[in-house]
Amino acid sequence: MEALNKTSLPPLAAPVSSADVHPPHLSPAYKSTILRSPTQPLMPVRELIRDLSMPVFGQSVLREFDNDLTKNARINGEPIGERIKVAGRVLDETGRPLSNVLIELWQANSAGRYVHKAEIHDAPLDPNFLGGGRVLTDADGNYAFHTIKPGAYPWGNHYNAWRPNHIHFSVIGHQFEHRLVTQMYFPGDPLFDYDPIFQSVPQHARELLIAKFRMDWTEAEFALAYQFDIVLNGRHKTPFE
């Protein structure tokens, strides 16, 4: 497959709003969207809904190694692969840090294989790696977890399709509209130009999905580090404003 949008990029347009970063529902290069995306426009309702506050998650929802995917599924040794730390902040659109945000994570192992039963990629499972975890943000909106850098994997979208390395994130904040599901990518991945899921995001916003390498956050002789900050949809007025 040829690189998508690799050449003749349109000039970078300033985003119309902070929400003008999301992919369209229908993105035909990602074939599964064709039968699974709404054909009618979504109905804007935020002026009609008074309050969609959600309860936060307390610290007791976490077990000891929930935020360490290198440790939370060990059976007889350490998982294979490159140990990394991923950390960042969760903010609302005004830059206010959000505490007690639940981030659920899942990813392939270092060979590019998911534990999921529907996964058929011919790459080895790692008996000591599940690839699932969760973490809460602290009072300043910070989160951090350790994991193994996921491998790239092929998928059936088109001939010789491969996903760039990525970690799946599910985020539950303080409001129903905070709800976000996304994927974090790694800097400089050569598969960006060939991946219709990454490319579904408007070009000016793709950088927001790429973690930053942070040499100053690396743990010497132990793990490299990446920063991935998350900004949630939150236009509702809060009592703090």
Partner: peptide, 15 residues
């Protein structure tokens, strides 16, 4: 701030 863009949950979320 610009929001973090959404991506699909994909097929392998269940575990």
């Amino acid at each position: 701030l610009r929001q973090t863009p959404s991506q699909t949950v994909g097929p392998f979320f269940a575990y």
